[in-house]
Write a protein that binds this DNA or RNA. Structure first.
Length: 693
DNA sequence: AGAGTGGGCCTTTTT
DNA sequence: GGCCCACTCT
């Protein structure tokens, strides 16, 4: 069998649009110019990994690969979009756009095409985590009469374990042993619940997140014709953040390869932080063995951080036993030593960080240049209070995502049901919003109509005949009318209009009567309608909404452009950088978290956080915190701090009982005036005499 | 019977 | 804020 897709060596005489040799260092250039075949690029933090990927993609396109035949798999949609945009700008390709996205979104696009081969319709719904949890709960309820009296795991845990099994290909018993050994005896019952969950998903014509990967793999392993088409279609595959792939994803990549095996994976084992989700950094370490002839490249020149920041990061990660030996080389001039800041309390921490943000701003740092990172969402709360109090604008990249909010999901449930009438989750959700409708009644109605014709049959139901009376009957009649109108042909092609119809006819009023801050929720929905306007049909819109995790930044319609400090979990900060980074809650039990199962992964997380900083790094550690019962407890500094050699940081201690705007941590000579809005009304401490010790 | 409400308990990290 | 349970209301 001939494979027209031989390697793509750069042509020696070729004049590129881009001056690759001029714009890349030698390490990067080798990667970009390598002809093809299996390649592994081990790229430390800040070594120009993104740049290398982008330039390799454009080099391939310049050498004649049609852009859509290059597949770029990334970890977030945002990263994909940024890289694709850059490739497009560089090449001004006429052959279209490079194919790219997260594993889940690319899987989704492929599965829409081949849905029928796998027993789905092309309109299948996608269940987000909450929907999947609900469905798991129903599967559990279905079987509970037959289950042994023992306590079964909660739906949430059932789903987590299920997901782990799917993503790692491990046995259920192994997964239980690992995550929930107390339920090991019930493996049989749990397996039965999972079978019921699968049935219910099928009936709903729905895929959960894991199905987007699993079914992709099944397509490759069980549908030779589909596999042939897919393998033919993509000439080169580039995978970013390969250290965070799990077994399933690694198998998908391997399954997509043709005989030439043109695959480049890029990653850094030191930044593998998704083990809890089944990621196996053994994937990256074992990649060369799985692909004989694999070329290994290393990017070790760090352009991002000052040498002092890198010394600290290197010193930290050296405590990990399982890693590739590597040393990041700094090229920037020496900068300030990272500050190891001990603060008395959570409030003291928030106050110190806020002071410091303002001080840096006086020194010329834009708020956009600064970020505060932490181990989990809740760690940002004190700080949010303080920043709000001081009118310091911030954006939070953690917590509930836009599309996971209740009002968003309520309205979208209507569109989902219209788009996929077999979507029981959607129907039950929207029905329960009506007075007199609880899970029971909604479920009973569903029994009456379930199937591909559910929508038509709901609209045709005689409410008296099914026993509805009073308020419930009126409410049901309104619902029927709304669903009728949503089916108008014009709506299918105008998701924004359909959404507005639901809001105007029903949800605006309902939210006013039933929810807090109805006003801002309605504003969210108006924004969402604008976003929906950009989509050709309901199905496309709904899928995007489920796979995209937020509507921030570039996506935001009428996005704000005022400068803001970023607050983020470390996980969400991966791949990003700021001039000044604060890592807070660096105390034992917080970071690393008490629940940590893998100390080395926690340390990698700390490493990721530290290497986000370009110029300044502050490591903040509260000495006291309140536990769940609001009792003050003493915290030890994080082991990630105490294990560091003392010459990689400068110690700063913020004393107890000091006024919250203590300035002793400021670098010498940094004078600033407290903005008027910060003056304390109490005025109990005259400022100006902040005499450091 | 089933809807609605309030209290207790848990909550790591995410596509 | 979600989930589960027990309680009260219709």
């Amino acid at each position: 069998m001939t494979d027209g897709r031989a390697l793509r060596p750069p042509r020696p005489d070729r004049r590129y649009r881009v001056d690759y040799a001029g714009e890349l260092n030698a390490e990067q250039l080798r990667v970009v110019m390598h002809p093809g075949g299996p390649m592994l690029a081990l790229a430390g933090a800040g070594t120009g990994k993104t740049r290398t990927l982008v330039y390799r993609a454009s080099r391939l396109v310049e050498d004649g690969v049609a852009a859509p035949r290059v597949l770029l798999l990334t970890f977030t949609n945002k990263a994909a979009r940024e890289m694709l945009d850059r490739v497009e700008r560089i090449t001004e390709s006429v052959s279209g756009r490079v194919t790219g996205g997260t594993f889940h979104s690319v899987g989704h696009r492929i599965l829409r095409r081949y849905a029928s081969l796998l027993g789905y319709t092309e309109r299948f719904s996608i269940l987000d985590r909450e929907d999947a949890t609900d469905l798991m709960g129903q599967a559990l309820a279905d079987l509970s009469p037959d289950l042994p009296a023992k306590r079964t795991p909660r739906p949430r845990l059932l789903l987590d374990i299920y997901s782990l099994v799917i993503n790692t290909g491990r046995d259920l018993e192994q997964a239980l042993l690992d995550r929930a050994p107390q339920y090991l005896e019930q493996a049989e019952a749990i397996a039965a619940i999972y079978r019921r969950y699968l049935e219910r998903k099928r009936q709903a014509d729905a895929m959960d997140f894991d199905d987007l990967l699993l079914n992709w793999l099944l397509l490759l392993t069980r549908q030779p014709a589909a596999r042939r088409e897919l393998v033919e279609r993509f000439e080169h595959i580039l995978v970013d953040e390969y250290q965070d792939t799990n077994r399933l994803q690694a198998d998908i990549v391997d399954g997509m390869l043709g005989p030439a095996k043109n695959v480049m994976v890029v990653g850094d084992d030191a930044q593998s932080i998704y083990g809890f989700r089944g990621a196996e950094f053994a994937n990256i370490i074992g990649f060369p063995e799985r692909h004989p002839g694999c070329e290994v490249f290393r990017l070790e020149t760090n352009y991002r951080s000052t040498p002092s920041i890198l010394r600290l990061a290197n010193a930290s990660i050296s405590h990990n036993q399982y890693q590739f030996a590597k040393e990041l080389r700094a090229v920037r001039p020496e900068g300030e030593l990272p500050a190891l800041v001990s603060v008395p309390s959570p409030e003291g921490q928030a106050s110190w960080v806020a002071d410091r943000l303002l001080a840096l701003r006086e020194e010329g740092f834009d708020l956009e240049d600064m970020a505060v990172l932490y181990r989990n969402h809740a760690h940002s709360l004190d700080l949010q209070v303080e920043l709000t109090r001081r009118n310091i604008p911030y954006r939070v990249r953690s917590g509930l995502r836009f599309f996971e909010q209740r009002h968003i999901k309520d309205v979208l449930a209507h569109l989902r049901f219209i788009d996929n009438p077999r979507d029981e989750m959607a129907f039950v959700r929207l029905a329960k919003l009506r007075p007199g409708f609880g899970p029971r009644l909604a479920g009973r109605l569903w029994q009456l109509v379930a199937g591909a014709e559910a929508l038509r049959r709901i609209c045709g139901l005689d409410s008296a005949a099914v026993g509805l009376r009073g308020a419930a009957r009126t409410a049901f009649a309104e619902l029927q009318l709304l669903l009728e109108d949503l089916q108008a042909p014009a709506m299918a092609a105008q998701p924004g209009e359909a959404l507005r119809l639901v809001v105007e006819r029903f949800y605006r009023q309902w939210a006013r009567e039933n929810l807090e801050n109805a006003g801002s929720r309605i504003e969210d929905l108006e924004q969402l309608a604008l976003f929906a306007d950009g989509h050709p049909d309901l199905n496309t819109f709904l899928a995007e909404v489920t796979l995209l995790n937020d509507l921030s930044g570039e996506d935001a319609v009428g996005g704000r452009d005022d400068e803001m400090v970023t607050l983020s979990t470390t996980h969400q900060a991966k791949g990003l950088e700021w001039r000044a980074v604060f890592i807070i809650w660096l105390s034992e039990g917080r970071f690393p978290t008490v629940r940590a199962e893998d100390e080395e992964e926690e340390r990698r997380l700390f490493y990721v956080a530290a290497t986000r900083a370009r110029d300044l790094l502050s490591l903040v550690s509260p000495r006291i915190a309140r536990d769940r019962y609001r009792v003050d407890v003493v915290l030890d500094p994080s082991r990630f701090l105490t294990e560091l050699p003392s010459d990689v940081y400068e110690r700063v201690t913020v004393a107890d009982q000091r006024p919250p705007d203590a300035l002793d941590a400021l670098p010498a000579g940094a004078r600033y005036r407290l903005p008027a809005f910060l003056e304390e009304p109490e005025g109990d401490n005259g400022d100006g005499e902040d005499d450091p010790n």
